[in-house]
Write a protein that binds this DNA or RNA. Structure first.
Length: 969
RNA sequence: GGGCGCUUAGCUCAGGGGUAGAGCACCUGGUUUACACCCAGGGGGUCGGGGGUUCGAAACCCUCAGCGCCCACCA
């Protein structure tokens, strides 16, 4: 088995470029492994994304109907969100198909569907039973707008203009005051202490005394706490508001005697504890508090300050640290020292059961888990898995004791799959069911129990994804076969939120890690290095790209930019709907600041494009504009992929046009016994053995690169082989042979190599490869290297290529390289002197190297590709009159240019070249004169330098000879 | 403040102790059937600055600067 579970996209909206990247790479892996013969499963699905989805739908309802969720009620809102989910899930799955994702579609799951719900319930129950889930009063990030707690990761910090006020409290039983500063004066209402550093001489005498908070007329102690108070900051004295500040809360835990007072209502107004400020919004209360303190003469000063303020990512409103009752999962180790959830997950990575690619990302994973912070899992939302706990709070101790007896001795013990906890402090009983059976409910309700109104954090269901989708807790055959999964492909920002928690859940529920490899891919940024987002208008819709350039182009370009170290910048442009010109997006266009762009046309196009028409740039517009057509957003970079797909298609077309009389036959070649000598029994000419050698090398490289998740390298290897070797050289050489007597052989090799290319490119470019494959099935049904076989119906199920290692043939590769040198030399000369391509040239070759150019085999190709009429080769340097030389190491190419050039100009050019060569020679010579170099450098490097002296001297002699000849002329 | 990454051609990026690479853009020439989304050729770089290790550094080490991301903190 080879298994990947998709990181389920949120049903909040359409797929973006990040999804395209993420899913393309997964599809490459799945298609490749499938071809390798693995039983490959790619599990698709979507995520209900609690807060995000509910917020989107609530916003929509508010906009269109002017109603809040409270107007609709829980049931109706959830119904509306389901409708939204159905719409966007279909859209997302459709987009994945457009992208070419080869998921097992019939297995599609949703994190809120019954199968996943069952797993959530089972896990929650198990954790509840094991004492890993507990009720706690904790400071949470409170979003007063959405009236929910949000996780740390759902907040962001932004520098905001704020104030910094200094006040003083009168010390009781003394005429002293103690001064302190705050950015949130309203929290004074909840102060329960004033804190100084224990060694701060200014305040030492005050420790143990108390001060009066005048606004609420409450006496609070002056305490010493070295962790909270920093004598070097501000006045050195801090007010302590445990219920509304994380540090103060920590201080309270160290000094519980000071007490804790919550002053806020869930909607952000002041509650009963705020005395006369009750009911005021927190910001109104702030002003009132400042004014009152000033009236009391306790105001000391104010300055404007830019302060980092925490915001809710969902509502974009400031977070209030807020004390509330929440459910938590315990992450730390057990009381008896046994490893807890976090420790288990750390071990799995430290001992290599789970490996990160690139490896450095395991640091973020381990660092985060090492903190072992308890995980707040309750969310004050309606969209999600409802917390399966029923609670009852008793009015007094007697009732509570009675309930305990009743529950423990009575009905509750008779119901098997129930866990029961009692909270002595709050006189509350909590009951958790495993099965949601109706009879339990009515019993519970009769007893006055009520289900918790909250839902679980989205990640609670996401963490089960690798096994819940396979049917856990049922012992399904799929689960047994496909779990643990093979590779998780995801982005680095959810290593902690998701990856770590999946490892935890996998180990906890099944005792096995959820995946072996975690591949972390780079991010796509816009042309300014900023993350793409719909709101900024700098993002690209993958569907636009598919329509403009094609899905294969999108996929190839994605693979090509998926490097190990770097995020990838993608300069974005608007494609003018009138003329197709790509107009670059500028920074000032972002955030919908520009509603209309006049197309400047493209003066560099051939022929130049004049446009001047207006359009609306692409972006998150609410609807179409009746006045202006909206541009699609594109990026030049995708042309690379599009051009490559076309190149492959055209090469395939050419080959298939020339398959008349094709007959399949096995290709055999025995390796050459020594360089330059053909292998015994091998009827294949040099160029065929060369391309097969290159194909073998390419196949080996691509396989290794995919094994190491080096997608960019794999894409590059394929691009270079297909374009620069197969198309530029082999196909060109084949053209003559297709008309000659060895047509049958060249057809077989062409078809065989094309067949391999189509297989190799298929994981990255499924569409063009499938098209060529089926066309090839018409033209050459039996094919393949080395032994032709009837082709599979689809390339998707064809075997991944693998060729004998001894097909690698360095001798053939060297010979071809030499031939290419000659051809390039002649072409260069032609271009330099502007000699028309069909004008035949005379060629004189001088070669001293042991691996000679196999002229008998490759000579005709030199003539064909370089337009050479007469060729001489030999050890003696011929010095033709009026010849330009092209000199490569060990090899010199002379082209007879009699009557074709201006001797004076040529002398000038050659003299310049001569100067450069002499300088080079000098450099090498001085290097060799350096005793340290000769002593310390590896011998082969010294030899290389010596050889290059000989070579340079030869070149210089040749150039000098040429100059002399030209002068005589 | 802690951690990670990046800085190489006009742009986007590979590479990596021994003569600097690709695609796009640019320049020159080319359209007698695979491909102008093309072919052939060319110009263009003190590899962010400064130190060090080395016979030799773009690469390894230190340091500085700039950019980006993650985590923590800021009465």
């Amino acid at each position: 088995p080879y298994t990947i579970v998709i990181p389920p996209p949120n049903v909040t909206g359409a797929l973006h470029m990040g999804h395209a990247l993420n899913n393309t790479l997964q599809d490459v892996l799945i298609r490749w492994r499938r071809m390798q013969g693995y039983n490959a499963l790619w599990m698709p699905g979507t995520d209900h994304a609690g807060i995000a989805t509910q917020a989107v739908v609530e916003r929509l309802i508010l906009q269109t109907e002017k109603k809040t969720r409270h107007d609709l009620g829980r049931e109706e809102l959830v119904k509306r969100i389901w409708a939204w989910k159905d719409k966007y899930e279909a859209r997302i799955l459709g987009q994945l198909r457009q992208l070419g994702a080869s998921c097992d579609w019939e297995r599609t799951r949703f994190t809120l569907d019954p199968i996943c719900a069952r797993a959530v319930r089972e896990t929650f129950f198990k954790m509840f039973k094991d004492g890993l889930i507990f009720r706690g009063k904790r400071l949470v990030n409170w979003d007063a707008h959405l009236q929910t707690s949000v996780a740390d990761d759902e907040t962001y910090t932004e520098d905001t203009k704020g104030g910094f006020w200094t006040f003083k409290y009168p010390v009781k039983g003394s005429d002293e005051f103690i001064r302190f500063s705050t950015t949130r004066p309203e929290t004074m209402l909840g102060d329960t202490a004033v804190c100084v550093h224990p060694s701060d001489e200014r305040y030492k005498h005050l420790i143990g005394k108390s001060v009066t908070v005048p606004l609420v007329n409450r006496d609070i102690p002056i305490i010493a706490d070295a962790l909270l108070a920093d004598p070097t900051l501000g006045t050195g004295c801090v007010k302590v508001t445990p219920a509304h500040d994380p540090n103060d809360y920590a201080c309270y835990n160290r000094n519980p005697q000071i007490g804790i007072i919550n002053i806020l209502n869930p909607d952000g107004t002041i509650n009963d504890n705020g005395g006369k400020y009750k009911g005021l919004d927190r910001y109104k209360a702030r002003e009132a508090v400042i004014a009152d303190m000033e009236a009391l003469g306790l105001f000391e000063g104010h300055e404007e300050r830019v302060i980092p303020l925490k915001y809710s990512d969902r509502s974009k409103t400031p977070i209030e640290p807020y004390l509330s009752d929440q459910w938590f999962v315990k992450m730390g180790d057990h009381a008896d020292g046994k490893p807890g959830l976090a420790r288990m997950a750390m071990d799995a990575v430290e001992n290599g059961q789970v490996r990160f690619f690139p490896e450095r990302y395991k640091n973020s994973y381990l660092d985060w888990l090492a903190e072992k912070r308890d995980w707040c899992i309750s969310r004050q939302l309606w969209w999600g898995h409802r917390i399966p706990v029923w609670s009852k709070t008793c009015a007094n101790r007697a009732d509570f004791d009675a309930l305990m007896v009743e529950c423990l001795d009575g009905w509750i013990n008779s119901l098997g799959k129930i866990v029961f906890t009692a909270d002595e402090k709050t006189l509350t009983a909590h009951v958790c069911f495993l099965d949601e059976q109706h009879e339990y409910m009515s019993v519970m309700e009769k007893q006055g129990f009520q289900q918790d109104p909250d839902v679980l954090d989205t990640w609670f269901s996401s963490m089960l994804w690798p096994h819940s989708t396979l049917g856990w807790p049922e012992k399904t055959p799929e689960l047994a076969y496909y779990y643990p999964t093979s590779t998780l492909v995801t982005s680095r920002d959810i290593i902690t939120l998701w990856v770590a928690r999946m490892v935890i859940a996998g180990l906890y529920n099944l005792g096995q890690v959820p995946f072996r490899d975690v591949y972390i891919h780079p991010k796509m940024l816009d042309g300014f290095g900023e993350t793409m987002s719909k709101m900024k208008g700098n993002g690209i819709d993958p569907v636009d790209i598919i329509e403009l350039y094609g899905a294969d182009a999108l996929r190839f370009t994605i693979a090509q930019v998926a490097t190990e170290t770097q995020d990838s910048r993608l300069p974005v442009g608007n494609v003018c709907p009138h003329c197709g010109t790509l107009v670059p997006v500028k920074k000032e266009h972002m955030y919908l600041r520009t509603k209309k762009i006049i197309c400047p046309g493209d003066p560099n196009a051939k022929p130049p494009v004049v446009c001047g028409k207006a359009f609306r740039p692409g972006g998150p517009w609410p609807g179409p504009d009746p006045e202006l057509p909206t541009a699609k957003q594109g990026a030049e970079k995708f042309e690379l992929g599009r051009n490559f797909a076309n190149k492959i298609w055209n090469a395939a077309r050419f080959i298939m046009m020339n398959l008349d009389g094709y007959t399949p036959q096995a290709i055999t070649l025995t390796p050459s016994p020594s360089p330059g000598v053909p292998g015994e029994g091998s009827g294949l000419p040099t160029e065929d053995r060369w391309i097969l050698s290159r194909l073998t090398a390419t196949t080996q490289a691509v396989t290794e690169q995919l094994e190491g998740y080096r997608f960019s390298d794999a894409a590059r290897t394929l691009y270079d082989f297909i374009w620069s070797e197969f198309c530029d050289w082999y196909v060109e050489m084949a053209k003559g042979r297709l008309k000659a007597s060895d047509k049958a052989t060249v057809q077989r090799v062409l078809v065989g190599v094309l067949d391999a290319i189509v297989r190799l490119i298929h994981p990255i470019m499924p569409f063009v490869s499938e098209s060529i494959w089926s066309a090839l099935n018409e033209a050459a049904f039996e094919r393949g290297l080395p032994n032709p076989e009837p082709a599979t119906e689809s390339v998707m199920i064809a075997a991944w290529p693998e060729f004998p290692a001894d097909w690698r043939d360095p001798a053939m590769e060297a010979s071809l390289a030499r031939m290419q040198e000659v051809v390039r030399s002649v072409r260069e000369v032609r271009n330099r002197y502007n000699i028309e391509p069909r004008k035949p040239l005379e060629l004189h070759l001088h070669c001293e190297c042991p691996v000679a150019l196999d002229l008998a085999q490759l000579g005709p190709f030199i003539s064909q590709l370089a337009g050479v009429s007469k060729m001489e080769a030999g050890p003696a340097v011929t010095k033709p009159e009026q010849a330009a030389s092209h000199v490569t190491p060990e090899f010199q190419v002379y082209v007879s240019l009699k009557g074709l050039i201006d001797p004076a100009a040529e002398v000038k050019r050659l003299e310049k070249q001569l100067g450069e060569k002499r300088k080079q020679l000098q450099g090498v010579q001085s290097k060799l004169e350096n005793a340290n170099f000769v002593k310390n450098a590896p011998p082969e490097i010294v030899e290389q330098q010596k050889a290059s002296i000989v070579d340079l001297q030869k070149q210089i002699a040749a150039i000098e000879g040429n100059i002399a000849d030209l002068r005589t002329e």
